[in-house]
Amino acid sequence: MRIANANPLPVFRRVLLAALLLPGVAAASEPEQNTAERITEAADRFLKSFSQKQAQKGREVEYEIGSVDNRLSLNRCPQPLEVEFAGDPKRSTRSTLLVSCEGDRPWRIFLSATVRIQVDGWVAERPISRGERLSSNMLRSSQVVLNEQRRSGFRDAEHMIGMQARRTIRAGTAITPRMLEKPLAVERGDRVVISAGNDVFSITTRGKAERSGRVGEQIPVVNENSGRRIRGRITEPGRVAIN
């Protein structure tokens, strides 16, 4: 007896249907990452690695990767994408990443990113006026963004104590070397001790400073005994040495 099938399927269609229903056989392949997704993933992996290396130096990194146009069409790269900084990330929070493929059909693309590197530093506890000498109660330890400054800030407060503010510093501002200067050790018109000589012998006399200066600077002074005008280097407040 032959049993009729009201809705017969060709044999190959029956086999295909059975295969699709078997465990472990996907009904449809997983969607492949597009170029934009691969670029973003590679950049994220690179910046995570950078953050871990900075953490070993006691620094904390926050970052945000710029968007990549999903319509971007580039040759598929057969190996992992290479990523590197296009500039020094410690100079600015606005960084540029160079993402490249080194396959048979290579390509390169630049990707923007915001990278904030935070370190332990010092900020002004209160407003500091221009010319004011710093003391410990003017300073407060705080996390500061290293790459927001053109120059890195101080890590040790002792290096700032006694320094003079070159300009007004607002409260909460991270203090950098360019904001400070050595205080004047001699002011114009001051009477100073002039010393001359070497390791074997030396002589001292009195003089008058004709210009203000800081330790290490050369200024003109007038010898009170001879009236002779000479130049000397300030060695400490009130003292000038003649080589």
Rank of each mutant, 00 (worst) to 15 (best):
I169H: 01
L22H: 02
R229T: 02
T93W: 07
A196D: 02
H159L: 15
D44Q: 14
N5V: 07
S92C: 11
I39D: 02
S142I: 00
R151K: 11
Q52G: 05
A113R: 06
T96G: 10
S141P: 11
P177I: 03
V193S: 08
R45T: 15
V145M: 02
G24H: 06
V193K: 13
Q33C: 03
R94I: 00
S51K: 12
G103N: 10
G153W: 03
E102G: 11
S136Q: 13
L97A: 06
F85Q: 10
R108G: 03
L9I: 00
I242K: 09
R140G: 03
F12I: 09
A28K: 06
E82W: 08
F110N: 11
R231D: 10
A241G: 04
P23I: 00
T35G: 04
S135N: 14
R105T: 14
I242F: 07
R45H: 11
A165C: 08
R228F: 10
E62H: 10
A26F: 05
E125Q: 13
L47R: 06
I3T: 12
D190E: 15
F110S: 08
R170E: 13
G216P: 08
I234G: 03
P177A: 01
D69G: 01
G24C: 05
L184E: 12
P177V: 01
L146G: 04
V11Y: 15
L20E: 02
I234E: 03
L72E: 05
G103W: 11
K48Y: 07
R13L: 14
A4T: 14
L20H: 05
M179Q: 13
A18F: 03
V200T: 13
A19Y: 01
S73P: 00
E148L: 05
S202L: 08
V240R: 03
H159G: 11
A42H: 10
P106L: 12
Q56K: 14
L98D: 09
Q56M: 11
L111H: 09
W122H: 13
R116H: 09
P10I: 12
R59T: 00
R211K: 15
H159Q: 15
L72I: 10
K208H: 04
V145P: 01
N137F: 10
L139V: 02
R166N: 12
K182D: 15
E82V: 07
Q118W: 13
N137L: 09
E132V: 06
K53C: 00
E82H: 13
L98C: 04
V192W: 02
L134M: 06
L16G: 07
V11Q: 12
I203S: 12
V200N: 14
Q56G: 04
G131F: 14
K57I: 04
N223F: 10
A241P: 01
E30F: 10
R150F: 04
A165F: 01
N5S: 10
N198L: 12
R133P: 03
A174Y: 01
R191G: 08
D104A: 15
G213K: 12
V186Q: 11
Q218H: 03
A42T: 11
I161G: 01
Q56W: 07
E84S: 14
I219A: 01
V145Y: 08
R151G: 11
R239K: 15
R239G: 02
G66W: 07
A55R: 14
L180R: 09
E132Y: 07
L134E: 06
S67K: 09
